[in-house]
Amino acid sequence: MRWLQIARKDFDDSRRERQLYYLLGLLGLVGLGIGYVVGDNSSSSMAASEVLPLFLLNVFGFIAPIVALTISQSDIVGKRATGELSVLLSLPFSRHTIVLGSFLGRIAVLTAVLVPAFVLASVLSTAMGAPLDVALLATTFLLIWTVGVVFTAIALGLSTLTRSTSIAAGGSFGIFLLFVFQLWSVIPTGIRYLLGGLSMPSGPKPEWAAAFIQLSPFTGIRNLAHPIAPELLRNFPLALGSVGESVPWYQEPVFAGFVVLAWIVLPLAIGYWRFQTTDL
């Protein structure tokens, strides 16, 4: 159970460094803001119960990755730079324990700052007369939480992979551009441009390009959860493309489940493999 000790320490570090409190305050304010806007308009056209979940999904779909990247990108590489990792690895912790414990600790921090924001938004909007769909709200939270877990895994993988704090910081900004800023969707076009002898691609999008775009984490999460909450995910701009009546193989929930799982497992596995095979 040594990973639990590392996870607990990782969470307590966030508290002792006051990072946890800053995030609680900031995200709490965002939650209150959303609650107020939804509650304030509860008598108008925005009276439907999916308004609050939709708001939360699209605002926190943007915030959760930023929070996850910010709190995780320096978690291991930073300890490596200060010598803290030498101390931890002089105690009976394996490198595996350090990675697993840190991952769970960061997820705990993420959860601890997301839950109050969602609760504040719901309480305030309901108090102001907006309808509340608890099941849909829970689904929304689960979606945002999954987004956060995926980006925590990516950032922590990066933090484990490199020995340079600036590579970790720059890399996580790159991840932000790639998925939140959606540069991912441009990659197939770029490849087609290069393959076509530096001329702009024309004609219908080939299947591989369409499939590639559906591999982004946001899109994977959308495709996975779409059958459960279609009314919520019809308008999720962070996910690319849209889900039609009959879905192609690369939008099947099972396939999307593997995509999401891969975005969690692969970054951690690659980071850990590198960490395991290099000197401190």
Partner: peptide, 19 residues
């Protein structure tokens, strides 16, 4: 890990554990 269970270490590079 078994080695470090029975060993006490003052490493060359050491940093405090967080705060």
């Amino acid at each position: 890990v078994a080695v470090r269970e029975r060993t006490g270490v003052l490493p060359e590079r050491f940093g405090p554990l967080g705060e």
